[in-house]
Nucleic acid binder design. Structure first.
Length: 422
DNA sequence: TCTGGGGTCCTAGGACCC
DNA sequence: TCTGGGGTCCTAGGACCC
C-alpha cells in the first residue's frame, strides 16, 4: 500500500503574518476575509477566546478591544508567495507533490524506510527556511491521511507527525475522531449520520457500503472505503485543466445606479480576463451577477444574473467587458432600480480551453489579434497594476472593498519594505 | 381508455472543500 | 455602519433523439 502524506500549515494566514512581525507570537491574531468581513484565520490564542471561523468582524469588536486581538486584512499576495516557498521545500523531500490548497499538499511518501523521521526532518526544514510550522499525517488513503493530520494537530504528543499506515493504530485512533471532522463530511451529512448513531470515524468506517451509497451517493461510499484504507481518490500531482474561474467582490460602499455597478463589473471582468491570459486560456461562457445585501431583509432585495456564450471564445478584455455590459443591462431591474443598493457583483467564466485548442469559427468574426492585450499586460506588469484600465472602470472606485488592516507585501513589493534608519 | 424503451446531453441545485 | 471568495463533484430531471 502506497503511503500518502498530507502536510498542512498551522493557521496558515496567521503564521504568514507572524514571519515578519515577531510581536505577533503568543498573542491572539486574526486575519479577515476580503472586504474585512469576517475572521477566516485565527491563532490558537484567538481560538481560545472563542472567536469562531467565519465570525463577522462587527460582532466581535468588543472581544477584540478587551483582549488586544491583533487584526489583519487578508494579504493574498503575501500568502501566495509564502505558499510557493513552502511547496519548494516539500519538493526537496518527495518527487511528487500535489498542491491541494494554499496551505495543504499531498506528498507521495512511498519507498521511504523511515517515514516519520523523514517527515520530522521535513518539518524542521520548512520551519527553518520559511518560518511556517506544519503538521504531517501519513496513511494509505487521502481521507485517512487527513484524519491522521487532524489527530496530530489536536494532540501535541505526536509532535506534529502521525503515521497511520498500521491498521491496528487506525483501529485504536479512529474512535476518537468525530464524524463531522472527516474530510468530505459536511454539516448535512453529519446530521444524517448522527441520526442513525454514527458519530465517529470508526463507526463510519464500519457502515455497510450499500447503506452509505443510499444515504450519501457514491461520495459517502467512497469516504467509507477510504476510511477502510482503500484509496478511491487518486494521488494527482499534475494539476487538472481548470473548468471555470470567477472574480467576485463585495463592495466597500454599496453600489447604486448602473454606472457605478458597471464600474465594478468592468474591474472584475478585467481581472478575470488577465487571469485567463496568465493561464493561456479562453472562455466560452460568461455569467454576470449582482445582488443586494442579503443580511438586510428589511431593505429592498434584488438579485440579477445573466449568462451568455462568447463567440468566438475569448480572453480579450475589450470583448469580455462588452459581453459583460450586455449581461449587466439585461439583468438590470426593469423598474425601481433606484431603490436598490448592490452589495456584491461578480463575473464567472466557464467552458475554459487552452487558447491553442480554441475552435475555429467559420462564419463569425475571427478572434482579435492578441497584440493589444500583450501590450496592455506588459504595461501593467512594468508600471504596476491598473496603470492602464478601461474608462468604464471609472476613477472614483467607491465600490472598492475595504482593506483597513493590511500588512506590507514583504516578499513581493520593494516599496512595502519597512525602512530602518540609524 | 388505451399510449415503449433506451440512450445522450444539458442545466440547476445541492453538498462539500479551504 | 459593519456578514468572503473561489473552486469541485454529483444527481435529478428535462429536452431531445431514434
Amino acid at each position: 500500500m502506497k503511503p500518502i502524506a498530507i502536510s498542512d500549515s498551522a493557521n496558515f494566514y496567521v503564521s504568514a503574518e507572524r514571519i515578519f512581525d515577531p510581536s505577533l507570537k503568543g498573542v491572539p491574531v486574526i486575519v479577515l476575509s476580503n472586504n474585512d468581513g469576517c475572521a477566516v484565520a485565527r491563532s490558537d490564542e484567538a481560538k481560545a477566546l472563542g472567536i469562531k471561523m467565519g465570525e463577522p468582524l462587527h460582532l466581535i469588536r468588543d472581544k477584540i478591544a478587551a483582549h488586544g486581538v491583533r487584526v489583519f486584512s487578508s494579504n493574498y499576495t503575501l500568502y501566495g508567495d509564502i505558499s510557493r516557498r513552502v511547496v519548494a521545500v516539500y519538493e526537496d523531500y518527495t518527487p511528487n507533490v500535489e498542491i491541494y490548497s494554499i496551505d495543504e499538499c499531498f506528498l507521495d511518501f512511498s519507498g521511504l524506510r523511515d517515514r516519520v523521521g523523514h517527515a520530522r526532518t521535513m518539518r524542521r526544514d520548512v520551519l527553518l527556511r520559511t518560518g511556517v510550522p506544519v503538521r504531517v499525517g501519513i496513511a494509505p488513503s487521502k481521507t485517512l491521511a487527513k484524519c491522521a493530520n487532524d489527530i496530530a494537530k489536536k494532540n501535541p504528543i505526536f509532535k506534529g507527525v502521525l503515521d497511520m499506515m498500521d491498521p491496528k493504530l487506525a483501529d485504536w485512533l479512529l474512535p476518537l475522531v468525530p464524524v463531522g471532522d472527516i474530510w468530505g463530511i459536511g454539516r448535512k451529512t453529519k446530521a444524517k449520520l448522527d441520526g442513525i448513531g454514527i458519530t465517529t470515524a470508526a463507526d463510519l468506517r464500519d457502515m455497510p457500503l450499500r447503506q452509505a451509497r443510499a444515504m450519501g451517493t457514491v461520495v459517502l461510499e467512497r469516504v467509507v472505503l477510504e476510511l477502510q484504507g482503500e484509496p478511491c481518490i487518486a494521488f494527482d500531482d499534475i494539476a487538472p485543466q481548470r473548468k471555470g474561474m470567477a472574480v467576485t467582490r463585495s463592495a466597500g460602499i454599496p453600489m447604486q445606479g448602473f454606472d457605478t455597478l458597471f464600474q465594478a463589473i468592468t474591474a472584475h471582468t478585467t481581472r478575470a480576463a488577465e487571469k485567463l491570459r496568465q493561464h493561456g486560456l479562453v472562455a466560452g461562457t460568461m455569467t454576470v451577477f449582482f445582488h443586494t445585501n442579503r443580511h438586510r431583509p428589511d431593505r429592498p432585495q434584488y438579485a440579477g444574473s445573466r449568462t451568455t456564450r462568447l463567440i468566438p471564445m475569448s480572453n480579450d478584455t475589450l470583448q469580455l467587458v462588452a459581453a459583460a455590459k450586455r449581461c449587466a443591462l439585461a439583468a438590470w431591474p426593469k423598474v425601481g432600480a433606484e431603490r436598490y443598493a448592490f452589495a456584491k457583483a461578480g463575473v464567472m467564466l466557464d467552458d475554459l480551453l487552452p487558447v491553442e485548442d480554441r475552435p475555429k469559427t467559420l462564419f463569425d468574426a475571427p478572434p482579435r489579434d492578441p497584440a493589444l492585450m500583450i501590450a496592455l499586460d506588459a504595461v501593467n506588469r512594468r508600471f504596476g497594476k491598473k496603470t492602464m484600465i478601461l474608462g468604464s472602470e471609472g476613477v472614483s472606485q467607491s465600490w472598492q472593498m475595504r482593506v483597513e488592516h493590511r500588512s506590507p507585501r514583504y516578499t513581493t513589493r520593494l516599496s512595502d519594505l519597512p525602512v530602518v534608519r540609524g
